[in-house]
Amino acid sequence: MSSIADFTAQSLAGAPVALKDFAGKVLLIVNTASACGFTPQYEGLEQLQQDYAARGFSVLGFPCNQFGAQEPGDAAAIAGFCETNYRVTFPLFAKIDVNGAHAHPLYNFLKSEKSGLLGPAIKWNFTKFLVDRSGHVAGRFAPTTKPQSLRDKIEALL
């Protein structure tokens, strides 16, 4: 597989979503969690969604419970948390693994395209992958990278 358009993921509501549906868009793909020290980044991610969606941008959130069991809820709990606390409008997907034997194929692809400081494994929740309009990984950013600090990089791809 050569781009994220080759993958399918399950929506938070349980429906299959072909990522080719996002073809031609700049994407910020993020593994998220509701009980993490970085959870307030949902606010910045939603602001990016609001500011750039009309120009062909979307955040894609992938809840993950692999780091400190910080996403223990089911799909309804995740959706309720994100709506109530952060008014999230960007697509959220079903909870996945991002590392290990059961890692989602999309995340295996993302990690193979852009390794992190400590190798390919995802270090923690809120690791971010910036994807260009062709579906290729343009950048990988640590959990500590605040969403608003990515504005210049996003704008360069729009």
Rank of each mutant, 00 (worst) to 15 (best):
residue 108 N to H: 14
residue 107 Y to T: 09
residue 105 P to C: 09
residue 56 G to C: 09
residue 9 A to Y: 14
residue 13 A to I: 08
residue 20 K to H: 13
residue 146 K to F: 09
residue 127 T to D: 05
residue 85 N to G: 00
residue 83 E to Q: 15
residue 21 D to A: 13
residue 95 K to R: 11
residue 27 L to C: 05
residue 26 V to A: 06
residue 112 S to M: 07
residue 154 I to A: 04
residue 134 S to R: 10
residue 96 I to M: 03
residue 18 A to R: 13
residue 82 C to F: 05
residue 13 A to T: 14
residue 131 V to P: 01
residue 93 F to R: 10
residue 51 D to W: 03
residue 155 E to A: 11
residue 25 K to Q: 15
residue 23 A to P: 12
residue 127 T to Q: 08
residue 39 T to P: 00
residue 18 A to G: 11
residue 9 A to R: 09
residue 145 T to F: 04
residue 142 A to S: 08
residue 63 P to W: 15
residue 71 E to K: 11
residue 24 G to K: 15
residue 86 Y to D: 00
residue 72 P to M: 05
residue 123 K to M: 02
residue 6 D to Y: 12
residue 80 G to N: 10
residue 33 A to Q: 00
residue 91 P to D: 13
residue 116 G to I: 05
residue 19 L to P: 02
residue 98 V to W: 04
residue 119 G to N: 03
residue 61 G to K: 06
residue 11 S to L: 07
residue 155 E to V: 14
residue 114 K to S: 11
residue 37 G to F: 08
residue 26 V to S: 05
residue 92 L to R: 11
residue 100 G to Y: 12
residue 28 L to E: 07
residue 112 S to F: 07
residue 143 P to K: 11
residue 132 D to Q: 09
residue 3 S to V: 06
residue 129 F to P: 00
residue 61 G to N: 14
residue 157 L to P: 00
residue 80 G to S: 07
residue 140 R to Q: 04
residue 153 K to C: 08
residue 109 F to L: 04
residue 65 N to Y: 12
residue 71 E to Q: 14
residue 54 A to P: 00
residue 157 L to H: 12
residue 101 A to I: 10
residue 50 Q to C: 02
residue 70 Q to W: 13
residue 157 L to W: 12
residue 60 L to N: 09
residue 54 A to E: 13
residue 78 I to N: 00
residue 113 E to G: 01
residue 30 V to N: 00
residue 81 F to E: 00
residue 28 L to W: 15
residue 151 R to W: 05
residue 27 L to I: 13
residue 98 V to M: 08
residue 55 R to P: 03
residue 29 I to A: 03
residue 96 I to W: 06
residue 1 M to Q: 10
residue 147 P to I: 09
residue 157 L to Q: 07
residue 111 K to Y: 12
residue 15 A to Q: 13
residue 110 L to S: 06
residue 151 R to S: 14
residue 36 C to G: 01
residue 145 T to N: 06
residue 117 L to P: 10
residue 91 P to I: 09
residue 40 P to M: 03
residue 139 G to S: 12
residue 133 R to T: 08
residue 89 T to K: 10
residue 17 V to F: 01
residue 42 Y to G: 01
residue 90 F to P: 00
residue 154 I to H: 03
residue 151 R to Y: 10
residue 141 F to W: 09
residue 49 Q to K: 05
residue 9 A to G: 01
residue 117 L to M: 15
residue 66 Q to M: 06
residue 30 V to E: 04
residue 66 Q to T: 05
